[in-house]
Write a protein that binds this DNA or RNA. Structure first.
Lengths: 218, 218
DNA sequence: TATTATTCGTGAATTAATTCTCTATTGGAG
DNA sequence: CTCCAATAGAGAATTAATTCACGAATAATA
């Protein structure tokens, strides 16, 4: 029996999907037509059943003894991640990180199209960075309403983050990608994904510390 | 009975700790001496028991009816995350993202000190970016051996990532912070933390898609 | 054509993480 | 001084995620 599409997926699974895509695009370049869970699990040091269950989320159906079609699998994963459609985004905060994101070509692969950037600093306003115009943040809400913007990227400091989020909500932006070290308050129908660098660094340094402690004990 | 320090911690807990720190440093600025789990859980929309268990990982002891000492809690969390000591780091790949990381002042708060940057592109070598010298990547391994480098930050493309990781391993770097969209192969005693932007973006766009589907059904 | 090895898919078992429930403590109010 | 309300802490119960075990399908091989 076919399972009914769930409205949520395990977040750990979602976080693994992009890694599968990296392996798969390489295989596509190498002109491989089929791939098995076993192969992917070896490449990424994961349990094969886990890979199978993750891939099943996308609705892919494999052939026993053969595996999955590489091309089809890529399409299904992209579709599952929502990377099969283009999404227009506004970016607020053209500091170092914001600038880097504006220049990150790879976002095209994920359907992310940064349309315009915003800032408060007059020295930045009026510039064009990697082909993206920088306007005053006051203009954002109205432009978002007029142009149907899907995603708001917040790369301002923690002090301004909530304020910027409020403006995005007013502009009917339904997805916020928040790089500021601040927990944002938004209505229920707005999705916030936090992408603080500190989280990742904390996991690394914490693990380094723990492994150091372990070594001292042995 | 006092629990013996574990050698590992739930990764979801580790990932929440930096958010606690954001709240706590704000409270410290506001001169608050004590804070309860209930307060923190309200700020961050988390379950109070979850907060309590997370904080317990750090070894903090609270007072009933009062809560935890803000200052002490900050120190314990920082210690648990390994942010109480300074770690020297090399960064390889001075593109947009690498440059942004070099200019990210906040890393000081986490004890991360980027000593030198490396690249292969002759146009970048010899420059000084945000006070950090850029050298040819061939010099990295020897310099790492001589200077005792704790962390290697990889901000090169996927094609060069493994090669760079190998050089870091040769230089006795025990922690790798990998921004390249590639799964790295390293010895057991080296810790790799992946920080691909695509993962976070995938969670956001995937959730946006799922919430859209849900809406269409209702 | 029959056999074998590989792989998918699924349900069960296990392990990890979260949430619930209760007890003990303690500062403040009456 | 006594009672009350807020809170930490710890163990139990629940839920989520991972891993195990096995049956069914199928391409390759003898």
């Amino acid at each position: 029996m076919r399972k009914i599409r769930k409205f949520s997926a395990p977040e750990p699974s979602m976080r693994r999907l992009p890694a599968y895509l990296h392996v798969l695009t390489r295989l596509l370049r190498e002109n491989r037509l089929y791939v098995s869970c076993t192969f992917i699990s070896n490449e990424l040091y994961l349990d094969p059943t886990q890979v199978r269950k993750d891939l099943a989320l996308t609705g892919i159906v494999g052939k026993p003894r053969v595996g999955y079609s590489v091309e089809e699998l890529i399409d299904k994963i992209k579709a599952f991640l929502g990377w099969d459609v283009q999404r227009n985004a506004f970016l607020v905060g053209v500091g170092n990180l914001g600038t880097a994101l504006l220049g990150y070509q790879r976002f095209r692969l994920y359907g992310l199209n940064i349309v315009t950037a915003f800032d408060k600093d007059p020295r930045r306003i009026g510039k064009t960075i990697f082909g993206v115009d920088v306007l005053h943040v006051d203009k954002m809400t109205n432009l978002a309403l007029r142009n149907k913007i899907d995603i708001g990227i917040i790369t301002v400091g923690e002090d301004a983050a909530q304020e910027v989020a409020d403006l995005m909500v007013q502009g009917f932006i339904k997805g916020i990608w928040n790089f500021a070290p601040k927990t944002l308050i938004v209505p229920d129908d707005v999705i916030v994904e936090n992408a603080q660098l500190s989280v990742s660094l904390g996991v690394l340094t914490s693990k380094m510390k723990l492994s150091q402690t372990e070594k001292n004990m042995v």
